[in-house]
Design a protein around this nucleic acid. Structure first.
Lengths: 345, 345
DNA sequence: CCGGTGATCGAAAACGTTTACGGCACTCTA
DNA sequence: TAGAGTGCCGTAAACGTTTTCGATCACCGG
C-alpha cells in the first residue's frame, strides 16, 4: 500500500502538504493540490483508517448496537433487515461506515456498551433491538457519547430516539376501515412494554374516539406480536355472538394479523367479506399470502436516514438554533392497501 | 479514557510490561500480570483499536461486502438477516468484529473493494449478495486478501466459497415426495445464473434419475425466485391434462412456492390433496401461511460459522496439512416438514 | 530600504499501542 | 568462580496520519 510518504516523495513535497491537499485545507496552492490529487489517484492511495482515527480521535464510523441474541431468541424485529439497508444507505451518503459492535453485556459487564464504543472511537452509536431494561443502556445514554435508539424510548444529554409515527399509522388504518363502512372495529395489541405497541394502541383508541365508535372491553385483545397470540385473539373475536362480533380488526403487527386470519378461516369467517383485517409493519409475508394483507408500512429507509441525521446532529453539535431535538423523532408511515379489507387489488 | 500509560504508572511498571501482561505474553511474572489485570479491570481500560491496528497491521475485524443496492432493487436475499446473525455470532465467539464496508464500485472504480478493505486493514472480507460479474470482484478474489463468498461461485489464491448443500437438500426433498407416494414430480427452478439455483436443479435431476422417475420437459419450469414467476409456472403445471399433471412439485425457492400455491388454488387444486409442494429456504413466511410450507431450511448459523472459520483459516494460514480448502464448502440443510405435502402438522 | 502581511509550505510532535533489543539479577553447570 | 542460560523487565523505535508552529518568500505601502 502506498502511504502518504510515497505520495510526498512522488510530488516533491512534504507529508504535511499532502495531508492538507487531500483534506481540502485552504492553505495549499491549487497547483500543488492538483498534483497531489493526481498522484493519489495514480498510486491508488487510501489513507489508513487506523492512523487517521488515532490522531484525530474519531473514526468517521458509527457503531451499531444490535443484540442478535434477541434475534435468535425468536423475538425478531419485523423489519430489521430493511432497517439495516436504510442505515447503510444513509451512512453511505455521508461517507461513513458502520461497525457492528459485538458486545455481550452479560459477559463483559455493565459498562461494555460504552467501553466498546469508545474503544472503536466511533462517532456515535445506533441502538436497536436490545432489551430496554439493561443498566448498560442507561449508562450509554447518560454518557456524552452521541446515540440514537430506534424504537426504544430512551433519551439522554446527547441521545434521542427515532421511531415510526405508529400512532398516526394506527389512526390512518382505522380511518380506512371506517371509510369502508366498518363501525364495529376491534384491535389486537402488542406487548405493552414495547413502545411501538403502546403507540399503536393509543392511535387506535384515539381514532375510535374521534369517530365516535363503541369500544367494548372485548374489542381490545392483548397479543405479543407473534402469530400464535394473533390466532388466539382472533379466536376470541370470532367467538363473539354475531351481533357483537367486530366487522374489522386492526392488528398491531403483521405476524399476529396472519394468525388472526387463520383463526377467522378456522371459524368459517371469510376475510374480507365477513371480517376485515389490517396489519402493521408490512413484513415480507404480507404481500405473499392470500388474501394479501392490507397493512401500514414503515418507511425503513426514512427511518434509517432520520436516525443517521439525528446522530450526526449530535456528533457535529448542530444545536445552535434549536435547544435539543424533540424525542422521539417520528417518521411517517404509509397505508398499503391490498386485499384483506376489500377495496384492494 | 484510561490509556496504557495510566496503567503503567498505576502499577509502577513500564508500558511494555503492561502490553505484554494484557496480551498474554509469557515473559511476565504471574504476580505482575495479576496486578496489571486487576488495574485494567479497575480503571476500565480498553486498548484503542486504532493504535493497535496501526502498529500490528491488522485490525481483528472482518469486513462485510454486501451490496445493499441489490437488496433495495428487490432482489432480496431470502435469509440475509439470519445470515448476518450467524456471522455476528460466529465472529463474536472468536472475539472479532464486523465492519459493513460501504463501497460503491460504480463511483469509486474497480479497485474499490480491495482498496477499502485494505484501508480498514480488515483481516479478511466476507462477500455476499453482490453482482457476480463485477470486475472489482475478480480483482478482490485474485488478490492475497483472505475472502470467502457466500453463495457465489468464485475462488482465488486465498479465497473460497461457502454455500448450503443445495444439491443434497433438493435430493432430500424429492425423496420425501417419493416416500409419500408421489411419482410425477415437477420442479420450478431459479435463475440459471445463480449458483444455488443450478445446484438445486442438479439435485432434483439427480434424485429423479436415481428414483427412476419420468421427467417430461414440461416438468421443469423456469422461474426467477420471485412470487410472480412461481405463480406463472404453477399455472402452467396446473394446466396440464390431469393424467400428465404432476402430483408434486419441488420449488427451488419459498417465495415462488407460495406463488405456485396461489396458482394451484386458483386452478381449483387443493394443496396438498391434489398436489404437494415443497419449497426451499424456509423464509419467515413459510411458517406463516396456510397450509404451512414444507421446505428445506438452510442453517444460517452453520453457514455463518463455516464462513468465518474458513476465513480465519486463510488469515492464520492454517494450511500446513491440507493443500487448500475444497471449494465450495458445503453446509447441511434440513427438511422441515409442515403441511404442504401432507404428513406434517 | 524596511516592516508588515499573506500565501505556501516543512519539521516535528503527537496519537496509543506493540515489539525488537538490550540489561539486570538470578541460577545452573563445569 | 567464570560463563552460559533464564526469567523478567525497561527503553525506544515504529506504525501512518494530522496538526501546530514556524519558516520562507513575494509583495506592498510607506
Amino acid at each position: 500500500m502506498a502511504g502518504i510518504k510515497d505520495l510526498a516523495r512522488e510530488c516533491g513535497v512534504s507529508v504535511a502538504t499532502v495531508s492538507r491537499a487531500l483534506n481540502g485545507h485552504p492553505e495549499v496552492s491549487v497547483e500543488t493540490r492538483r498534483q497531489v490529487q493526481q498522484a493519489a489517484e495514480r498510486l491508488g492511495y487510501r489513507p489508513s483508517q487506523s492512523a487517521r482515527a488515532l490522531v484525530r480521535g474519531r473514526s468517521d464510523a458509527v457503531g451499531l448496537l444490535w443484540d442478535s441474541g434477541y434475534e435468535t431468541a425468536g423475538r425478531k424485529h419485523p423489519f430489521l433487515l430493511s432497517l439495516l439497508v436504510g442505515l447503510k444507505q444513509a451512512l453511505s451518503d455521508v461517507g461513513r461506515h458502520l461497525i457492528l459492535l459485538n458486545v455481550d453485556v452479560d459477559r463483559q459487564g455493565p459498562r461494555a456498551y460504552l467501553d466498546t464504543a469508545r474503544q472503536f472511537q466511533v462517532d456515535g452509536v445506533i441502538v436497536m433491538g436490545v432489551d430496554d431494561h439493561r443498566p448498560a443502556l442507561r449508562e450509554l445514554f447518560e454518557s456524552s457519547l452521541p446515540c440514537v435508539a430506534i424504537d426504544h424510548d430512551i433519551a439522554g444529554p446527547r441521545a434521542c430516539c427515532v421511531t415510526s409515527d405508529n400512532r398516526a399509522g394506527a389512526v390512518e388504518a382505522v380511518r380506512h376501515l371506517h371509510d369502508l363502512g366498518h363501525r364495529r372495529i376491534a384491535t389486537i395489541t402488542g406487548p405493552v412494554d414495547l413502545m411501538p405497541a403502546v403507540q399503536r394502541l393509543r392511535g387506535f383508541q384515539q381514532a375510535v374516539g374521534e369517530l365516535g365508535l363503541d369500544l367494548p372491553d372485548e374489542y381490545v385483545q392483548n397479543g405479543d406480536f407473534f402469530m400464535d397470540s394473533g390466532y388466539a385473539c382472533g379466536r376470541r373475536l370470532a367467538g363473539l355472538p354475531k351481533s357483537r362480533r367486530p366487522t374489522a380488526v386492526f392488528v398491531a403487527g403483521d405476524e399476529m394479523a396472519l394468525g388472526a386470519m387463520h383463526a377467522f378461516a378456522d371459524a368459517g369467517l371469510d376475510v374480507p367479506e365477513d371480517i376485515a383485517v389490517v396489519g402493521f409493519d408490512d413484513i415480507e409475508a404480507a404481500s405473499l399470502v392470500r388474501p394479501a394483507l392490507t397493512t401500514v408500512a414503515q418507511d425503513s429507509l426514512a427511518l434509517g436516514t432520520a436516525a443517521v441525521s439525528a446522530l450526526l446532529d449530535f456528533v457535529d453539535d448542530r444545536f445552535g438554533d434549536r435547544p435539543a431535538p424533540e424525542s422521539p423523532i417520528l417518521t411517517p408511515t404509509r397505508l398499503v392497501i391490498r386485499q384483506s379489507c376489500g377495496g384492494g387489488r
